[in-house]
Simulated assay, not measured.
Amino acid sequence: MAEEVTKSIYDITVKDMNGNDVNLSTYSGKVLLIVNVASKCGLTHSNYKEMNVLYEKYKDKGFEILAFPCNQFAGQEPGSNEEIKEVACTMFKAEFPIFDKIEVNGKNAAPLYKFLKTQKGGIFGDGIKWNFTKFLVAKDGKVVERYAPTTSPLKIEKDIQKQLEA
């Protein structure tokens, strides 16, 4: 059986923190920043802080951040969904959606990440290198840009504005 070809991010269904299916078509027409997150990474504090700033500023203008916890990098997201929610929502005050923990690399990589990587490969091949790799998705569901883990979310703001105005 051949793997079905995903044409758009809106063909993909993911799970929320409670295990419920969420079809990404729910976000059709919005500009998305998709990020693989971790609670215990050196980049965690600054990324959550800056993503909150962007979210607060643009959430009413058609912008959404989708965070996917992942434990594939130095075991920096070892907790359960409840523990992850505690860190993200209580400690870091994240209001944007945080989904079920997934894998972003390897044979068990989530379909969403397989799709993102085929759309925008990284400098060193397609694999996700670390926590907080960011993908910017246009309103039509096409991946427009991929950013390194060390790229600060606020540095992406101009690109987000450009997509919101498109």
Rank of each mutant, 00 (worst) to 15 (best):
N105W: 05
A166S: 13
A148S: 11
M17G: 08
I9S: 13
A110C: 12
D11S: 06
T6H: 03
L112F: 04
K7A: 09
T118H: 08
K162Q: 11
V35T: 14
Q119T: 03
M1N: 14
N47E: 08
N36T: 13
T133K: 05
S46W: 02
Q119H: 10
K129D: 03
I98G: 03
D100L: 10
I84M: 12
N36Q: 07
Y55N: 15
V137L: 14
P153M: 08
E103T: 01
M91W: 08
G42D: 02
K7V: 02
K142W: 00
I160G: 02
E103Y: 07
A94V: 15
D16T: 08
F115T: 06
N105E: 09
N47K: 05
N52C: 15
Y58C: 01
E77Y: 06
Y27P: 01
I123N: 12
K114F: 00
N131S: 14
C41D: 11
S8T: 06
Q76L: 08
T90E: 10
E165G: 07
K134C: 00
S152T: 00
F132G: 02
K49G: 08
F68D: 03
Y55L: 06
K49C: 09
L24V: 02
V5S: 15
P78F: 13
P69L: 09
E95R: 12
N131E: 06
G141P: 01
A88I: 00
F132M: 01
R146T: 08
C89M: 06
L33G: 09
L32T: 04
I84K: 13
M17W: 05
I9P: 04
G75F: 03
A148M: 13
P153A: 13
I34Q: 07
I9R: 14
K61W: 07
G79A: 15
G62S: 09
L54Y: 02
E3S: 04
I128K: 07
V35K: 10
G122N: 03
Y48N: 09
V22W: 05
I160S: 10
E50Q: 15
L154S: 04
F124R: 05
D60E: 11
P97W: 01
M17E: 06
M91V: 15
I123M: 08
K142M: 11
K49H: 14
K114G: 13
G106V: 02
P111M: 15
T118N: 07
F115S: 05
F124C: 12
P78H: 15
N71E: 01
L164V: 04
L54D: 04
G127M: 09
V143H: 06
N18H: 10
A109C: 05
K85M: 13
A110S: 13
K30D: 02
G125Y: 00
G19F: 04
E165H: 07
E145S: 11
E83A: 08
P78A: 15
E50G: 06
T90N: 12
I34H: 06
S25T: 10
Y113R: 03
A74Q: 03
V104M: 13
N18G: 10
A110K: 12
K117R: 13
Y55I: 00
D11G: 02
V87S: 14
I98P: 00
N23G: 05
N81H: 12
E56F: 01
H45D: 14
C70A: 08
A2H: 11
E103N: 15
E64R: 08
